[in-house]
Amino acid sequence: MRDEDRDRSAYEETTALVQELDELKQRGSNLLVVGSRMPAAHRAACQQFLGEASSEPRRRLFALADPSASIEDRIPRTNADSESLRVVRYAAESRSAAATQPSSQTDSIDETPIEHDDIGEFGRALSRAIAEFEAASGGLSPAELRLCFDSLTPLLSGYEPETVFRFLHLLTRRVRTVDGMGHYHLTTDRNTQTVALLEPLFDAVIELCLHDGTLHQRWYLRDRGLTTGWLQL
């Protein structure tokens, strides 16, 4: 392929992706972000989906299932206030004691620990947090809610895949009821049975990679049947 043809193709793919994202913002969406052994790529994608560059109102909800997870590298300290940020941490008693210790950043915000090994209560706590945002704002605008599920891996390690599927089915539906945007990190390769099982729940799967020292993303958009090339993240 000639360079000019390659540039034209990349431009068309980027344009189609931007149009699709605009539609997803209006109707609510859930995105599955996959890629193994690339924490920097997941952090960069997270910051993008949280809408940090936007001046529009944002209500950010973090679901933390990894005991060592922190939001400090995902959102600036200046945005860590009780009105626009919530953290629900799956701090089951059987897990690491570190799970119950909030980071220095989250000392000033509302962090809800789930201290029993109950995935159902985890989901209910997230739903309550969304309802609190709704009440505080008098109704959420499209894309105002941004949910980051920092890692699905611990849940998939502790529960049967079908149980996690049901949990995510309810959560993704709840996000869509308020026209929110949720993204869910899964540190595995794109072509796995786990991704194939969960993919029907999501509007798109975003695959991450590191190429020549630069982070890239490739989108699989289910409704459009569109797969982009590798785009710089």
Rank of each mutant, 00 (worst) to 15 (best):
P154F: 13
L31T: 11
R59K: 14
F62M: 03
W230T: 09
S54I: 04
P76Y: 03
W219L: 02
A204Q: 09
E72Q: 10
Q47P: 04
P76D: 06
S68H: 05
L210M: 09
I71L: 08
L221F: 10
E12M: 12
V178T: 09
D179W: 01
Q19R: 11
G51M: 07
C148N: 08
D107L: 13
T15P: 01
T106F: 04
L32M: 09
A41R: 07
Q48E: 08
L64S: 06
I130W: 00
G180I: 13
D118V: 00
E111W: 02
A135I: 14
N191M: 14
A129H: 05
L61D: 03
S9M: 15
I114G: 02
P102N: 12
L171P: 01
N79Y: 11
G158H: 04
R59Y: 14
H116M: 13
P102H: 01
E115H: 02
R89K: 12
P161E: 09
I130G: 09
G51F: 01
D110P: 07
A99Q: 03
T153G: 05
T163N: 00
G28R: 00
D223L: 14
T100Y: 02
A40N: 00
R6M: 03
S29L: 02
R218F: 12
S141R: 13
V18H: 07
L168T: 09
R2N: 10
L197E: 03
I75T: 08
P102Y: 02
Q19K: 13
L201M: 08
